[in-house]
Design a protein around this nucleic acid. Structure first.
Lengths: 237, 237
DNA sequence: CGGTATTTGTCCGTATGTATA
DNA sequence: CTATACATACGGACAAATACC
């Protein structure tokens, strides 16, 4: 009777007091008194809110309003995808197609709207990507930065966060499942093409470039997709 | 030391046993023994997993693998948006723009890919919308069904779920904040236009129709959105 | 219909680890 | 190093909800 209600009341408390991210919450004893519940119930409610990124609990220090990032969504999406994959579904492909649909759809918005500063940064990122590819290093982080920077010009922080969340979830699942990385050379060339396309302002060309990039990942995916891992998986899941 | 680990081990247990949604989990005493932790710790871990939609707890019955829906994401997005709005940010507008960017971007994919059965259903939905508008009823549910049906033809269940989640979050926030509903007549006309546009296969026209639809909502939003612009809090992204 | 067993919900008390002063 | 405040973890107890006989 109180369990679900406690979370709502704590959320209401945050809203009523206009607490910003990082602001301290009342201590557990204070919350016990304010909410009229035991320590255990309060703790369970806080744990649930922590899982949703609404509060942040620091051991031996206190409880604070969380960053309200989309990290919980990443967790949920990643687990859902891994679980589906293990059960023989094409969940990983669906996640990739979700990214493809959204990012290709955004291509037309991108054309000519990217600030020069971002274009320069994107150039540097592709350069770094080629340098990493040359020395055989992983270029996952650079790829992430490229996609993040690409959509920064849309001037919507929420949209960028969602896209980054999709990227994170996909990347986590693919690495946890031990998928083979695609050919770095091809990846570099395709990112260069995306960058040139959006710079030229040709929306159709940009869309095609992004579509081809995802088509490449998809091809790598289908080679390792139908597996039933009796082996163990990473503990990161 | 065990808190974060317990969640991972329970998730690992679900993956190892290939448990599908709705499958029963071990009872709390069994989990206590299997994980070597006390009941409170197990319960807190389960509460966190419940908040992420990974498990489902039914009082007096048992614990089960959750539906793994995007409901937690809706909660998180909605709360994040409400909290931001109360603190004077344009979070609600950002959420709307997120929907607009994604849905307009999907318009080109839609053209000519919608099955006839879905087109018939969409016709019926707009008819119902007009009927509801005529008698002054709320047409939120019908609007939700329209958008859900529209993107069903993309053949990606995950994408549809994400779009529905965005819709739910936006609608919940707007109603919680007591925003004024837009003119039903205009809404009906714009949905009819969207439907006709995607039926014609003209992707540019479809994109424009969707953009105008969102433009209408945005206009309604801006009348009540900006409050206390001088109360700027310092916050990290 | 009632009784009983099972399972989760809530609460209390206590001890331990951690960070600040 | 000591003291204080806080979160973490444990074990036990009873209440509430559900299923089954």
């Amino acid at each position: 009777m109180a369990a679900r209600d406690l979370q709502e009341r704590i959320k209401k408390l945050i809203l009523d007091r206009r607490l910003a991210s990082g602001a301290p919450l009342p201590t557990e004893p204070e919350l016990m008194e304010h909410l009229g519940a035991s320590r255990n119930s309060v703790r369970e409610a806080l744990k649930a809110l922590q899982a949703m990124g609404i509060v942040e609990i620091r051991h031996g220090f206190g409880t604070y309003v969380g960053p309200m990032s989309l990290a919980p969504m990443i967790e949920g999406l990643a687990f859902r995808t891994v679980a589906g994959h293990y059960r023989g579904e094409d969940s990983l492909l669906q996640l990739l197609e979700l990214r493809e649909a959204v990012e290709t759809g955004l291509a037309s918005r991108l054309s000519g709207r990217i600030p020069d500063a971002d274009l320069i940064e994107l150039d540097a990122l592709v350069d770094r990507m080629e340098e990493e590819a040359a020395r055989g290093a992983g270029l996952a982080e650079t790829d992430r930065a490229f996609h993040a920077t690409l959509y920064r010009g849309l001037d919507n922080a929420l949209l960028c966060e969602v896209l980054e969340a999709f990227w994170d979830a996909f990347h986590r699942v693919r690495t946890d499942l031990g998928g083979e990385p695609q050919d770095p050379k091809v990846t570099c060339r395709q990112h260069r093409e995306i960058l040139d396309a959006v710079r030229s302002g040709d929306s159709m060309r940009a869309e095609e470039a992004i579509r081809e990039h995802f088509g490449n990942i998809r091809a790598r995916l289908s080679t390792t997709a139908p597996q039933s891992p009796h082996t163990r998986h990473n503990e990161r899941v």
